[in-house]
Design a protein around this nucleic acid. Sequence first.
DNA 1: ATGGTAAATAGTAATTATTCCTAAATAGGA
DNA 2: TCCTATTTAGGAATAATTACTATTTACCAT
Lengths: 157, 157
Amino acid sequence: MSLTLEQLRKHFQQRGLKFTSQRYAVYQALASSTEHPSVEALYSIVKRSYPTLSMNTVYNTLETLKEIGIASEISLWHDKARFDANQTPHHHLVCLGCKKIEDLFDNTLDALALSPRAKHRYQILGHRVEFHGYCSDCNNRKDKPKKRREPKWLKKD
Amino acid sequence: MSLTLEQLRKHFQQRGLKFTSQRYAVYQALASSTEHPSVEALYSIVKRSYPTLSMNTVYNTLETLKEIGIASEISLWHDKARFDANQTPHHHLVCLGCKKIEDLFDNTLDALALSPRAKHRYQILGHRVEFHGYCSDCNNRKDKPKKRREPKWLKKD
DNA sequence: ATGGTAAATAGTAATTATTCCTAAATAGGA
DNA sequence: TCCTATTTAGGAATAATTACTATTTACCAT
């Protein structure tokens, strides 16, 4: 399920990133948790084995794990709260470029329900669907993905 | 669509909350925007007509609007970032009580797509579905909704 | 209309999450 | 083993939110 040490090392080295014990430990902590941990939670866990660990390293590592596609941030809008006075059921279409949020009215999405199995364990009050992508404006003027300098010895796979 | 002054007044007064010009102005600003504004955005708008407005008032007002059910916060997890190493498609089930997040594997949810009309304007990279409710634990020991002292003159409708 | 009172506001300070900065440490190619 | 660019640790800076408190105000009772 989660990556082995060797797989992980490969992910890093293929991109010219160093494979450090801190990065390994943070990945391990994240991958072995089912609780969708916060930065602080990971910091606390890893700090037990790396007492000099800094928060910064956890932030950086998570950013790197996201960039190489082996972890994700599940809280898309954690930066600041956003509000809506429209109380009719609807969903959202979020542009990852300009952060614009469009309303999405769609009966099919409104009608989604939990599987009966999950349902009996939860009292569900609502659900949200958000689609992520680039709006036509941002899609055109979209920045090329951040380019790390590729090491000359890079092995394509 | 959005509430009239009198409807709004009623919402407040029925719950023993005072109907202040600041609250009205914040609601107006929120309801007349399609941009899902942040606290700061609302503050800037309303401050034009209420130069002494404080951020605190905007925060409080939004909290109140949420409590009485005439506005919502669309960013459920804005407080801190949460991460996941599981890269297989899945969705989430969030307990509003204990904030626990469970994974939800469901092919139907994975397969949701934008309506063709919306689709042609966006390059969609993914989507997420989150269900909100109370897990069985929290449902049992769930706090009764915060009780404001009901004024004796309260009119039931 | 007026006064009394609990609630709301403004303003500021405190807290929390995140980002920025820099010197020291180190992974990994040469 | 050496060199160097990257990474780390630690602390400072910033941004979002919450807490605190004196003053003001909405609104019920008179």
